[in-house]
């Protein structure tokens, strides 16, 4: 099960990174979102994978899921949303102001980076 979980995280991270390396804004935003899923899964798993563990304290229960990574990931999810929102709105603003949705700096006289 651990191997499978790790594989999923790895695939999500790889797909996210590939998208983040694209030259247009929208795929980059989608890629970052995908990457943040991978990161959240990774962080979540640092507490171990607990099946049927208790999430809430009850009398007589001893098998609890690790709450600390959960709390961390919970905030990470919300912050991740804020980041996605900010970057996508930034992309829209760039398109509105510069008429392009390329991620590379278009202001220089010559294209600085090789076309991608």
């Amino acid at each position: 099960m651990e191997a499978l979980y790790a594989t999923v995280t790895g695939f999500l991270a790889a797909s996210g990174l590939y998208l983040a390396l694209r030259g247009r804004t929208f795929p980059v935003v989608v890629g970052l979102t995908l990457l943040s899923y991978a990161v959240n899964l990774f962080l979540f798993s640092t507490g171990g994978l607990t099946t049927n563990g208790a999430a809430v304290i009850r009398e007589g229960v001893t098998d609890y899921a690790d709450p600390l990574p959960q709390a961390l990931v919970l905030t990470a999810i919300v912050i991740g949303f804020a980041m996605t929102a900010f970057s996508v709105i930034l992309a829209m603003r760039v398109r509105g102001d510069q008429g392009s949705d390329q991620v590379n700096d278009q202001r220089g006289e010559e294209p600085k980076e090789e076309k991608s």
Binding site: E2, A3, Y5, A6, T7, T9, G10, F11, L12, A13, A14, S15, L17, Y18, L21, A38, F42, S45
Partner: peptide
Amino acid sequence: LAAGFGGVVASLNF
């Protein structure tokens, strides 16, 4: 690059 990155993340996680 992505494959390498994914591989590293997966190995680390495992």
